[in-house]
């Protein structure tokens, strides 16, 4: 499994939000994309996940050109994402949030029949996924009434239910308490270790990124200014200049 991004560009009016970005996400790696505000991280993310179409360049997944695929097609191909602002089905029970994704993966979205046994298997699987992210015992709570940290975990659980090969997380630690950040960070490492999911993270918390990542891509003004393992990025002059305020200590 590799995700190859080649010469990807996207313009908004006169602004090149993403300018000729090339990088490769390796199998089972945790790959972070960082950069100052407005560097084009989220745009790049949206280009990969099908929320936006690129002007130039291509994205290939396992050698298949997936450029411009719709989100639902990408989901079935094994590319899942989570959202910067937690995106769940708030009015539905926690377990149903995950069950929806399980059914979708099983190709049941248009099914007008589902046997009791099949539905039971779906619920059982959903329960296991919830346990994996620490939501066991909360299956029947309305998703919107979960605490913030749990909602983020549920967002990740929904993504996991798709059995993705790669999971893209848009600022998974944003707006969380210190304790919750640690928990989500631990969850991310475990997912990679236990499930072998490659994880792409767009993140502001540079300290956490340095600890978690196998590889880091640093963007500024839509371009990649540095790429490498954390030890290399830490010493990179261009990166130090990009982060003038010195909040770059790990």
């Amino acid at each position: 499994m590799t995700l190859e991004i080649h010469g990807l560009s996207r313009r908004f009016g006169g602004l090149k939000a993403v300018n000729d970005v090339t990088t490769t996400i390796a199998d089972k790696s945790i790959h972070s994309i960082i950069g100052p505000n407005g560097a084009g991280k989220t745009t790049l993310f949206n280009l990969i996940t099908g929320a936006l179409a690129p002007d130039e360049g291509k994205v290939a997944f396992n050698g298949n050109d997936i450029t411009g695929w719709t989100p639902e097609r990408l989901a079935h191909a094994g590319i899942a994402r989570t959202f910067q602002r937690t995106s769940i089905f708030k009015e539905l029970p926690v377990i149903e949030n995950v069950a929806l994704a399980v059914r979708s993966r099983r190709g049941l979205n248009r099914s007008m029949f589902c046997s009791m046994a099949q539905e039971k298997a779906i619920r059982e699987e959903s329960r296991e996924i919830l346990a994996r992210v620490g939501l066991n015992g909360k299956e029947n709570i309305r998703a919107g009434s979960l605490a913030h940290g749990f909602q983020r975990a549920l967002d990740i659980a929904i993504g996991l239910a798709l059995e993705p090969k790669i999971m893209l997380m848009d600022e998974p630690l944003a707006g969380m308490s210190r304790g919750d950040r640690e928990t989500v960070a631990t969850l991310i490492t475990r997912l990679r270790e236990e499930l072998g999911v490659a994880i792409v993270v767009v993140e502001h918390d540079v300290g956490m990124v340095m600890r978690l990542s196998d590889r880091i891509t640093v963007m500024q003004h839509g371009k990649v200014i540095a790429e490498g393992p954390p030890s290399v990025i830490r010493e990179d002059e261009a990166v130090k200049n990009a982060y003038l305020h010195g909040n770059f200590a790990a």
């Binding site: 719709t70 097609r73 989901a75 089905f89 069950a99 979708s104 979205n109 099914s111 798709l162």
Partner: peptide, 26 residues
Amino acid sequence: LRTTPLGRAWLAIRENTERASFIGVN
């Protein structure tokens, strides 16, 4: 219909259309 996978996927659309498409619902 409400109890079938189709009916439940409809509710997912009502609740959060963007998320629904990202879990593979057309």
